[in-house]
Design a protein around this nucleic acid. Structure first.
Length: 596
RNA sequence: GGUCUCGUAGCUCAGUUGGAUAGAGCAACAGCCUUCUAAGCUGUGGGUCGCGCGUUCGAAUCGCGCCGAGAUCACCA
């Protein structure tokens, strides 16, 4: 990597010029801004104290010294305290010929084969997946790809919340009103069917509360005394007591939910290596609480409940076991963390979970630290922001929830309309065309969501459909498809073999050089997005790359170029660009159509 | 009220971890298809980086204080 060698050379040059060592971490080397001539920029302001010269003079003498150290540097320009180094065209050309035929370009070889357990999705089984889950799933899946490219071994896990009062509500409504309805008999997707009964429960419950309040009860008392709620709790109690009838219905209804989820996951293109179920893990963690009591880290109150005191760390006291000895959400998460560690011995455990649970994960990590668990420091909550609608958060009550299946279908249909409007894909057989629309529609959706910094809240307006022009997935896919067609033609003309040979001695046009420079950044982009657990870095990069290439494509002929060396250069440039776009999109879980 | 996050163009978002004249896309307007795919390219207009103070050669970026938006603080998950 050139930056490293440049920094080392700078250190040597400083010693020669100023006869003293300098803390190189105080120096920044960056890519020169587009509007300014140069490839790399060294900011010399921090050196002024030891050079005791003006910024301009310091930059100039450092530039001269660096030219002697590094043969790639062919000239430099100085603007105030900025030393802009210019590399020879041969440097960029040799980068291009060196990587154009390497499938591994950008992929880091496994350094330590560090293992990472990555949890994402984590749905409840009482309702279908919505837009919020979509962001979660896309982030999780993309991160698994990025971390893998970075050289980690990633284990994708899902923790399905299949037990609890919410599913009991759906069960109760179904027992009352179901009449044996099934996904088959109703033609409804399984998760949608469960969701329907959850909504029905909610409606009956609200009505009950209204009636009770009319009789003079407070809202709180009404919610407590509602016979429906009492009955739902009774179902939960029966479930925990392994009542046969209850468990049978529970299994049946969860099964429907899974069938539905599978369809959604498949269309979204996400998958898992291991699925944990809360019904199997919710009892875990109690042993760890006992252990904590023995160690004196936790306290038992007179009523038997167990707490951890985090007031010294600026947090509150937190319940870990109820007074009746049953476990809460936190207890279970303590247990599953331990379980995962035993299953895989990862060095890190990443949880892709919304930022509404920041407090929970903060506490989880602190408790594990206090328990002195070896895996505690490796716990990391990848907290992502909410997806908001123009009128605020999604509310199931107000029917503003954007359903994941509907959204994908809509994207598919829009992609179809769009493509036909442009008069494309008319010669494709129906099946091929549908595959294409799916790839484009989902590409638009995925890019739209992933280009935003995960930790920030983002806005989604269902009325304004997602764009297909400009900074979008289809724009990038289109750039790649155009290159694919170029490559096809080059292959037919037998021109592609020329890309095996190295090239040098060509003067690069600005657009060519800009594109090559973008390509050199790909490995660092993977590194940075993996280190920061941020797919948006890849998304924004691949957009910039496509845009830069399009400028080149617009002004320079490739196949029609008559000078064979120039043609070869442009072909190589196109081949590597297509490959990097395809791989970057794959890191986002987005497909690249051959034609569009 | 305590804790945490966010505030950049009319709208949606970037901003390489403190660097140069703060950038894209959408929307608006004006151009470019007898030339490898026009889902493209080129140009114009659009900014008190929420406000104020501080740190220093230099602040959208770091610190403090306000203002505004959101999340969270259950013997729920």
């Amino acid at each position: 990597m050139f930056e490293k060698r440049l920094l080392a050379a700078t250190g040597k040059a400083i010693v020669k010029l100023y006869l003293q060592e300098f803390d190189l971490s105080r120096l920044t080397i960056e890519r020169t801004k587009k509007e300014i001539e140069g490839d790399f920029t060294l900011v010399v302001f921090p050196l002024l104290k030891i050079s005791r010269k003006s910024p301009g003079q310091t930059a100039t003498e450092l530039g001269e010294a660096l030219m002697k150290e590094l043969p790639e540097i062919c000239s430099f320009r100085v603007i105030k305290g900025f030393l802009n180094l210019i590399l020879s065209d041969d440097y960029w050309l040799s980068f291009l010929s060196g990587n154009v035929n390497s499938e591994e370009f950008g992929i880091c070889p496994a350094l330590s084969k560090e293992k990472v357990v990555l949890e994402y999705s984590s749905p409840n089984t009482n309702k279908p997946l919505h837009l919020g889950h979509v962001r979660n799933n896309l982030l999780g899946y993309s991160l698994s790809k990025i971390l893998t490219a970075r050289g980690y071994e990633v284990i994708k896990v899902n923790l399905v919340n299949d037990r609890g009062i919410h599913i009991c509500k759906s069960m109760l409504a179904y027992m009352r009103l179901g009449n044996g309805e099934t996904p088959e008999s109703s033609g409804m997707k399984g998760d949608k069917l469960i969701g329907k009964y959850y909504v029905l429960f909610d409606r009956m419950y609200k009505e009950e509360i209204r009636v009770l309040m009319e009789k003079g009860l407070s809202e709180e008392a009404a919610a407590q005394q509602s016979p429906l709620m009492l009955e739902a709790r009774e179902i939960l109690r029966k479930w925990e007591a392994s009542d046969a009838e209850t468990v049978t219905l529970w299994k049946q209804m969860n099964g429907w939910a899974y069938q539905g989820f599978d369809v959604t996951y498949k269309r979204m293109g996400v998958d898992f290596d291991h699925i944990y179920y809360e019904s199997e893990t919710y009892l875990m963690g109690k042993d760890m609480v006992v252990e904590g009591l023995e160690k004196g880290v936790l306290k038992r109150r007179d009523d038997g409940s167990v707490w951890i005191d985090l007031t010294a760390e600026g947090l509150d006291e937190k319940l870990l076991l109820r007074s009746d000895g049953t476990s809460v959400y936190m207890t279970q998460d303590l247990g599953t963390a331990g379980l995962r560690y035993n299953d895989y011995h990862p060095s890190r455990m990443i949880y892709v979970v919304g930022n509404e649970q920041n407090y929970h994960f903060d506490v989880l990590k602190r408790v594990l630290l206090k328990l002195d668990k070896p895996y505690a420091p490796g716990i990391f909550h990848l907290s992502y922001g909410m997806v908001e609608l123009p009128e605020g958060r999604m509310k199931s009550r107000e029917g503003t929830v954007v359903d994941a299946d509907d959204l994908m279908e809509e994207m598919f249909l829009t992609a179809g309309e769009m493509t036909r409007e442009l008069g494309k894909a008319s010669e494709l057989p129906e099946k091929e065309a549908e595959k294409l629309f799916e790839m484009i529609g989902l590409g638009a959706l995925k890019y739209y969501i992933l280009k935003v910094d995960p930790k920030k809240n983002m806005l989604f307006d269902p009325k304004e459909s997602i764009d297909f022009n400009g900074n979008t997935g289809p724009f990038i896919q289109y750039t790649c498809a155009r290159i694919n067609s170029l490559i096809e033609k080059a292959t037919a003309l037998n021109l592609l073999s020329a890309t095996e040979q190295a090239i040098h001695g060509i003067t690069l046009l600005p657009a060519e050089k800009e594109t090559i420079k973008m390509l050199t950044m790909y490995p660092q982009v993977i590194g940075q997005s993996a280190d920061e657990l941020n797919p948006a870095i890849v998304a924004n990069y691949v957009y910039e790359l496509a845009k830069t290439y399009n400028q080149f494509y617009q002004e320079s002929p490739v196949l029609k170029e008559e000078n064979p060396e120039l043609r070869q250069l442009r072909l190589m440039l196109s081949v590597l660009t297509a490959s990097v776009i395809r791989k970057s999109l794959a890191l986002l879980g987005i497909g690249s159509p051959q034609k569009m």
